[in-house]
Design a protein around this nucleic acid. Structure first.
Lengths: 240, 240
DNA sequence: CGTATATTTGAGTGCTTTCAATACAAGTGG
DNA sequence: CCACTTGTATTGAAAGCACTCAAATATACG
């Protein structure tokens, strides 16, 4: 498989062969981590960056009452912590879901890249800003959609994002989430997520088994969940 | 009043006299806009940046069913659209609440600043990344807290942020929000927000009248809403 | 002083939660 | 290889938080 970061950025920027090499070079040092492994914990002050190469991870916060809110799903090509280029301290934790291959990138290597390849740096900021758009879309989802639409919207988003890194085959992709994790991301209870998913199946919108999600009718799913991919900014990056 | 952007950044970075001047210079061209004025609309491709100097604004999305979700409150010192440095198109709208003084900054001026003052650019990225932290905190708020705690948490956040730009006097500050707007930001209905606010008053936690919010017992409010200011990253910026 | 906007109150409804129990699958240790 | 543990999915019934609808009151503004 090609490098997922390269795949992601090529959707929005014309990369030179050289730039592709630089990006691949960032991923030199990678390791496969076990499921449910905390890559980063709240309060950490990491001195290297982490990039997902294979598998999924979650960004999450634990609350005082013992509950948990997932604030992002990270898929291949996503940085876990680009913000540590500027911010000192992690204000949340990051954990793998299934086994996941993580690239470890020395902070210094990134700083060099930014100095030597400003255009590439720009592309990385694009990724950060898209992440911000995703966060806003999640707020809209949590704030203004009922459980059914909310779940459908999440599935549309993951379909789209997985597609952007070439990980959708036909109408299906690997979504290694339990219903508990879906619940923790959507602000619902696992019990209710279960009922919602059953309805999605009943309505012949999805098939979801053994971590494999099949979208039977993506257009209908997008329509009913009011999904508009504009927030993922598939348009070309401004490189001036 | 001093420049709110300078005030905000000085909390986390040691600015030289020169840098302060540059920041003030960004705000040269400013205008007072009327209440409920759309500074930017979804789909716009702005060629200048907008910075709040006085008053409040909202970042919001309109949904297909006619409802609205506010995804951010912008206060003095906040950029409306730093992301247009990289992204082409607005994926949401921005509107003033009360009358608000907005600085208009040509994109090019910002690009010059980034080239000539990399440290300042770093400080601006700090602001963007804190905004991202705020978005995550909102997701946690919407996903895992009931209406009462959720409302309390919002008030703690705005207290803290207003304080960071020197706009809290004693225990009170100007919060030009109607209950409808609070509802649209918290994913609640105005009716329910009304009942929650009454309870907050009953419990002697706040006084809220004529757009003036007084926090009677900030410590209790923080405790009960599980508020931890770490996500606002008051720590010193990494400037290497 | 009239009109529009914002706040408040009440009653009834419903989506989602909570609590509890069952079924099922996967992994572990003896 | 089986008993056992653990995590996940599923189902049912009851309770509750927040919503809807509707109307009254208050406040701001021209």
């Amino acid at each position: 498989m090609d490098n997922p970061l390269v795949a992601k950025l090529e959707n929005v920027a014309d990369l030179t062969k050289d730039q592709r090499e630089v990006l691949r070079g960032l991923c030199d040092h990678a390791r496969v981590m076990p499921p449910n492994y905390d890559i980063l914990r709240e309060g950490d002050k990491p001195n290297r960056l982490h990039l997902i190469l294979e598998g999924w991870a979650i960004r999450y916060n634990n609350l005082a009452d013992g509950s948990r809110q997932i604030t992002a799903f990270l898929i291949p090509g996503d940085f876990c912590d680009l913000h540590t280029m500027v911010l000192q301290q992690m204000d949340h934790s990051i954990a793998t879901l299934g086994p996941a291959k993580i690239a470890y990138i020395p902070l210094q290597k990134l700083h060099e890249l930014i100095r030597q390849q400003p255009e590439l740096a720009q592309a990385l900021w694009w990724a950060t800003l898209v992440d911000e758009g995703v966060l806003r879309a999640w707020i809209v989802n949590l704030g203004r959609r009922d459980a059914f639409k909310r779940t459908a919207h999440l599935m549309c988003e993951m379909y789209e994002r997985m597609n952007n890194v070439g990980l959708v085959a036909g109408d299906q992709f690997l979504m290694p989430l339990t219903q508990v994790e879906i619940a923790d991301s959507l602000g619902l209870t696992p019990v209710h997520v279960n009922r919602v998913i059953q309805k999605l199946r009943q309505d012949k919108l999805i098939v979801f088994e053994r971590e494999q999600l099949t979208i039977c009718d993506i257009e209908r799913l997008k329509r009913l969940s009011d999904f508009d991919p504009a927030y993922l900014h598939p348009e070309h990056v401004r490189l001036d």
